[in-house]
Design a protein around this nucleic acid. Structure first.
Lengths: 140, 140
DNA sequence: CGGGATCCCGTGTGATACTG
DNA sequence: CAGTATCACACGGGATCCCG
């Protein structure tokens, strides 16, 4: 049962029970409900490099619609991860920047990216193997 | 360009551009497409504490339907994060355990949970403030 | 420029019934 | 026990038009 700490990737992390009758709140769902959607992390990544205006964000994030960009930054603002500043010029000018809380999220995002890059090939091969052994499978 | 390592929470992490024409692949979306859904992380959390059988998982994860548990473990299996073992008994007996890749994910999940618990109150207050200042808002 | 309002559709998820 | 099959539906998200 002893765990070697000489190798950080040796075993799974110790995690509190989660989503169970007695322990409904582990916090994980909160984060995922916040950044698990299609665009939030991309906005955060873009803002990690500094303040951006609305159109700047839209141009930087390929494929996002005006509607979704609006909704995404609004939600991030509501959660206090992004600060929205309106400059009363004509035409209006609005910029977005990460709050301190939002900035702290970037480290998590980086951890996600690092993990992905590290295991991407392994996962791709696992998929190929699985799909080869399960020809007719509605999962993909 | 130098980074102080004395304070990890000082500023935002340095992140590669992501989702842009020139840099479409930062890897983040891959991870989120994998664990960003409603149930995957809960399965991973449960399996972090050891192998589980199908019904065990379903009882441990409150609210999950048979269908969604099946789909979730299948996807995780396909990606090589979970190993599925069928014992040819009667009635059939199947157990699930994390692969090494899957186990490495638990550290990420723990980071997510830690971040959430650390900022949950701050975010809750930000929401209250926002909602108070924006009475009729379709965001929530 | 920075949105709001509407319409529309795919798909992720839930409920239920059936099977080896 | 460990699934599969089917239906049913809400919701996220895209497209489009309009406004201050």
């Amino acid at each position: 049962m002893s765990v070697r700490h000489t190798d950080v990737t040796a075993g799974p992390a110790e995690l509190e029970p989660c989503g169970q009758p007695g322990h409904p709140e582990c916090g994980i769902r909160d984060v995922l409900d916040r950044v698990g959607d299609k665009w939030s992390v991309l906005v955060i990544v873009e803002l990690a490099n500094g303040a951006r205006r609305f159109r700047q964000l839209q141009r930087a994030i390929e494929g996002i619609s005006q509607r979704m960009l609006t909704l995404t930054v609004r939600r991030l603002e509501r959660d206090g991860l992004v600060l929205r500043t309106v400059h009363p010029t004509v035409p209006a000018q609005v910029d977005y920047r990460l709050t301190e809380t939002g900035a702290s999220l970037t480290h998590l995002v980086k951890a996600l990216a690092d993990w992905s890059l590290e295991h991407r090939d392994t996962i791709a091969r696992a998929r190929q193997t699985y799909d080869a052994q399960h020809p007719d499978n509605g999962i993909r």
